[in-house]
Structures are given as structure tokens and as C-alpha cells.
């Protein structure tokens, strides 16, 4: 579904990502691990086309189509969706208005989704304005459920969310990734996680470790987590459990 080939990205004069290659097949969920500042969020934003970083070389192919130079909205309309780590506050836009607009665009109904995500009390407020971490995530998940992307990019879904909300977020992500209909089972995801809590809800197939802008190893995500928990990311560089890239 997604092939990233030799992607090098810079911001200003600084190379942020170097020669990144990965392939996510339909139905697969991959996780991306790495220390702060390693470039994980930049990779997700580069796939979505967000931000002002520059693609130096390489390409991104989604469902056979080169999306490297497409705009954010073009990628979204092809079926790529993103849940960002920190959603910006948009006091100008009521969640109700945005949900209605998206539901019209994607030809779906949204009220039951809002109810399931416990978003009803947020509908008439400016989006993310004074929302708690959990409320922000749930409001974003509502948008994504309406959008129903086939490739879902998720940046630290546990960030700023209490344990109770992690369950709601995790289950919603799982449902988004699984899809409700048989034809939607071929969805895919790429998730950044620091804590690994999300792995209790989402069945991840593969994990990558990104350090200093380079993918250094890949393997079973739970194995990777175990090594990182025991020995830190540096230990990850030395271990023989996973495949060194």
C-alpha cells in the first residue's frame, strides 16, 4: 500500500531523514520507535505532505501512485489520513461544523460516531480550544472516522492522554485500522509510539527503530520494545534480536 524508497528530507540546511525505505502492505500495521528528535514525526508529516521540510531525494508511492509531490489534501483524498501528536487549536472552527462538512464530503453520517467517542459536549466548542489531551485525541479520531482513510498515520496516540482515554483512543484506532466492512480489511497504518501502550489495542506486524534520521533496525515490535526497555535505544543498535537495516 505504501512504499517509501530512499527518502531523504531536510529542514533548512539540516538533513532530518536520510535514505529511508520501508514498505507497508495492505492489512499491515507498522510501528515506529526512536528517541526524541530522531525524525519520527517528520517522517509521518513527509508521507502526509505536511510541514515545510524539503524532499531532497527518494519517493513515496501509495497504491501504485507516486505521491511525493502531491499536496496534503490530494493525498488525503487518495485515502491517506493522519492523527498528529499535538493538534493545533482552531477556535474559529466548531467541531460540529467540521464534522458536518467532512461527513458531507465523505458521504457518511457522524452523530453516532461522536456519541461513541464521547464528543457530544465538544461539538459546539472551537476545535481543540482548551480541550484536554484526551478530548483533543477523541475530536481528531472523530474526524478520522468520518474521513475513513485507508492508510492511517498516527503520531504518539498516547501523548497527553490519561489511562482511561488511552483505552478509548486505542479501541478507536483499532476499529479504524480494521475497518467495518470486508473490503476495508486491507487498511494499513504507521504508528509512532513511545510508551507502547497502543500495542495493547492494535495488533502491529512490524516495528522500526529510527535514530538520527536513519532506520537502524526492524523486527517484531514487541521484541523491539523489550530490548529498548531493557537497554535503551543504544542497546537496540547492538542487539541481534532484530534485523539490522
Amino acid at each position: 500500500m505504501l512504499e517509501v524508497e530512499g527518502l531523504t528530507v531536510k529542514a533548512g540546511d539540516r538533513i532530518i531523514l536520510e535514505d529511508i525505505s520501508l514498505t507497508i502492505a495492505p492489512g499491515e500495521v507498522h510501528v515506529l520507535l526512536g528517541p526524541n528528535g530522531s525524525g519520527k514525526s517528520t517522517l509521518l508529516r513527509a508521507i502526509m505532505g505536511m510541514g515545510d521540510q524539503e524532499i531532497v531525494s527518494g519517493k513515496m508511492v501509495y497504491n501504485g501512485e507516486d505521491i511525493t509531490r502531491l499536496s496534503v489534501d490530494e493525498r488525503a483524498r487518495l485515502g491517506v489520513g493522519i492523527a498528529v501528536q499535538h493538534s493545533p487549536a482552531l477556535p474559529e472552527v466548531r467541531l460540529r461544523d467540521l464534522a458536518g462538512l467532512l461527513a458531507e464530503r465523505y458521504k457518511t453520517s457522524w452523530r453516532s460516531m461522536a456519541q461513541a467517542l464521547n464528543c457530544d459536549h465538544l461539538l459546539d466548542r472551537g476545535l481543540n480550544e482548551n480541550f484536554s489531551g484526551g478530548e483533543s485525541k477523541r475530536a481528531e479520531l472523530l474526524q478520522l472516522m468520518i474521513q475513513n482513510p485507508r492508510l492511517l498515520l498516527v503520531d504518539e496516540p498516547e501523548s497527553g492522554v490519561d489511562l482511561e482515554n488511552i483505552a478509548v483512543v486505542g479501541e478507536a484506532l483499532n476499529s479504524l485500522l480494521k475497518g467495518e466492512k470486508i473490503k476495508e480489511r486491507a487498511k494499513a497504518g504507521l504508528i509512532i509510539t513511545h510508551t507502547g501502550h497502543i500495542l495493547n489495542y492494535v495488533n502491529a506486524d512490524r516495528g522500526y527503530v529510527l535514530i538520527n534520521g536513519r532506520l537502524v533496525c526492524e523486527g517484531n515490535p514487541r521484541d523491539l520494545f523489550e530490548v529498548i526497555n531493557k537497554r535503551g535505544f543504544e542497546g537496540c543498535l547492538e542487539c541481534a534480536t532484530c534485523k539490522r537495516i
Binding site: 496534503v72 489534501d73 488525503a76 482552531l90 474559529e92
Partner: peptide, 19 residues
């Protein structure tokens, strides 16, 4: 952020400005 939901740049700008 709004474009990532599939709105065009013009639609996103208009929605923000309207609000």
C-alpha cells in the same frame, strides 16, 4: 491540519476565515 482531512487550501482558508 484541515487539508489533511481532504479540504482544499481554499476551503480550509475559507472555513477558518468564516469562523
Amino acid at each position: 491540519y484541515l487539508m489533511a482531512r481532504g479540504l482544499t487550501e481554499e476551503e480550509a482558508t475559507s472555513l477558518l476565515l468564516q469562523g
